[in-house]
Design a protein around this nucleic acid. Structure first.
Lengths: 176, 176
DNA sequence: TTTCATTGTAACTAATTTGATTACATGTAA
DNA sequence: TTACATGTAATCAAATTAGTTACAATGAAA
């Protein structure tokens, strides 16, 4: 075990320098990058819309995966989250999922919360352990915390104004 | 080179199975996690507030780093972004940074944009290449794109309502 | 002009999260 | 029983963050 570990630690730097350097160029030429909220959210909306539009048929994870263009396991994980949030009905062994309530009563905010893409009051991260000996350091967190929460709530409120039914209607409208 | 690569690829699985499994437990027991916007943003606000409160003194990257409790290079990177956005003045070789304009004319939205934590219209990621043969797949992106943009703009508008001067005043108020 | 502190920046790292994938256990119906 | 679907654990490659070392470039002061 120890021998493996030693050999490993000797080889990694050699291997890294020999083979992986090209990757660094791609990364480091960029400078600072930015983040996006997980596509679980958009996939969750896609799934619920598809359940509605495929109402007559059976929406298995395989079927949905083909529409989303991803792996069925990804779909089953997200459907599991929607189920935990009470948004869909789905049972082991039985093909197909269904909305648990009328889509006019499911907002994008419900889906957003179900798929757990952003924690409450944690859209913005605040740097940890600023210096308590500094006037700014010992107050900055309490000062910006409420401001960040308010901004996050404004975003979430916007999501709460739209239902999945609205999304389905817009999709159908684009085809007419 | 090829030999190194082969040995490496043989050893990695062995090493992984032997030594790194404990890490997986920590990670995998969690299920899906969530993201936060980079603390560059809160550090940027901290820096500008400190420049104001330390107006009489010299705010070098070392000085600021001690207040934020991080590495001076991290501070210099963020100050570089603030400089690019025209929010601070700072020159190579000369210690200290200063706000480039009155803090009552710098909003949190200005800082947010300066430190590039979220791209325009890209707070939410949309799953790529949905199936164009599906009614939902070929329309979902166009349908949810504007909805996501609106939610993002609501958040950003909230940030635009607060200036760094407001933040400084709140910090001072907490000490009185 | 030399010295020295400071900014600017490249290179690298460990830790996290994401989305995808394989494998398989569990559950249901024909 | 067989066949198929859901549930879920275990991995993986890629991307991002925050931190670190190292050093080049700049400017002020001795």
């Amino acid at each position: 075990m120890l021998f493996q570990k030693l050999v490993f630690e000797l080889l990694v730097p050699i291997y890294t320098k020999s083979f992986i350097l090209y990757t660094n160029e791609d990364i480091l030429c960029k400078g600072a990058n930015s983040l996006s909220i997980s596509s679980r959210f958009s996939v969750g909306i896609h799934i619920l819309s598809l359940l509605e539009i495929n109402k007559g048929g059976v929406s298995s994870s395989d079927f949905i995966a083909k529409s989303v263009n991803t792996n069925p396991v990804v779909i089953r994980k997200i459907i599991g989250m929607l189920k935990n949030a009470g948004l869909v009905n789905v049972r082991p062994g039985i093909a197909g999922a269904e909305p648990a309530r009328d889509l006019s009563e499911i907002t994008l905010l419900d889906v957003y919360k179900a798929v757990n893409v952003v924690q409450e009051k944690a859209l913005f991260s605040v740097h940890e352990s600023p210096n308590p000996a500094c006037l700014v350091g010992r107050n900055i967190q309490d000062t910006i915390g409420p401001l960040f929460s308010e901004a996050q709530l404004a975003m979430e409120k916007s999501l709460g104004n739209v239902t999945v039914e609205d999304v389905v209607k817009d999709i159908l409208k684009r085809e007419s």
